[in-house]
């Protein structure tokens, strides 16, 4: 039963980020490859502040502030750059944040990560924590579903389909992009904090390139822009990822095999959705 609770918790930690990412990348068709960069900055800001002050409220506020700051940078870049240029820039920003974390060892302990994180005020038992995650996920899924069906959801979909036509109606691209990235910042906060609380360790390896591939895979496989589709794909793919641990292969082979398998799934999903994944080019 403990393993089932473990799976529930892991799904709960991936879901907020995946749902906000599908709003930006899936529905908004903004080629954003920096969601892990936001999570990385948020988690380090939170846990370094927690280590320094010992106060959870201050730490969470700092984490939220840093999530908003880096998301605002991404939103600003998305307004200033062409879509493909922004895609590359978002990877560059993510890698820049990662390299700062890896190299500023005196603050972040670099590649060693930060172990024995102070416990957050969540239930101490695994079952209790899992139930908190279930409730949080239900609230999050409902919230994202409502946002998807709201005026904001329609505006971001309109901008994704045709920027000029939307602007001619009065839809402000700047306002919609900023709001979308702010929702993304909240998703990063609500995903990373419980995850690091649960494993008790903050390590930069969780924010490397394979993590980004997994994020993209969750959205593409679940149908970009679909709240329920991405919820189901998150559940299934996190289960697959964890169950692969039981495949009787040596760890040095299992790791690459898992990466290859995810690469194949991503390739198949992109191929299947090739007509709807990226914005259509239309002229006026």
């Amino acid at each position: 039963m403990a393993f089932v609770w473990h799976l529930v918790i892991l799904i709960g930690t991936w879901l907020p980020g995946a749902l906000t990412y599908t709003m930006i990348f899936g529905k908004g068709k903004i080629l954003h490859f920096g969601p892990l960069g936001v999570s990385l900055m948020t988690s380090y800001a939170t846990f370094l502040t927690l280590g320094a002050t010992g106060s959870y409220p201050i730490a969470v506020l700092t984490g939220l502030g840093s999530a908003i700051a880096i998301s605002a940078v991404f939103a600003w870049l998305s307004l200033r750059l062409e879509p493909d240029g922004f895609g590359i820039m978002s990877i560059a920003v993510h890698l820049s944040v990662l390299s700062v974390v890896l190299n500023w060892s005196s603050l972040t302990r670099g590649a060693l990560g930060i172990p024995r994180l102070p416990r957050a005020p969540f239930p101490a038992s695994q079952e209790g924590f899992a139930l908190v995650m279930v409730v949080m996920c239900i609230v999050w899924v409902l919230g994202m579903w409502l946002l998807d069906r709201s005026s904001f959801g329609r505006k971001i979909a309109a901008l994704a389909e045709h920027e000029w036509h939307s602007a001619a109606l009065g839809v402000s691209r700047a306002r919609v992009h900023f709001l979308a990235f702010m929702v993304g910042a909240l998703g990063a906060l609500f995903g990373t904090l419980p995850y690091h609380h649960y494993i008790g360790l903050l390590h930069p390896n969780d924010y490397q390139f394979p993590g980004l591939i997994f994020f993209v895979m969750l959205v593409v496989a679940g149908k970009p822009g679909s709240v329920f589709g991405v919820t189901i794909s998150t559940i299934l793919l996190v289960l697959l990822k964890e169950l692969l641990r039981f495949v009787p292969l040596p760890p040095d082979i299992l790791g690459p095999v898992r990466l290859i398998l995810f690469g194949v799934i991503l390739f198949a999903a992109v191929w299947y959705r090739r007509d709807t994944l990226f914005p259509k080019q239309r002229t006026v």
Partner: peptide, 23 residues
């Protein structure tokens, strides 16, 4: 617009609603 300036992936109702919500 010269080409059709509607949002093909939205319903007709949403097409009108999004214009009104942008006011």
């Amino acid at each position: 617009f010269q080409n059709f300036g509607i949002f093909r992936d939205m319903t007709l109702f949403e097409n009108v609603l999004v214009a009104l919500e942008a006011l």
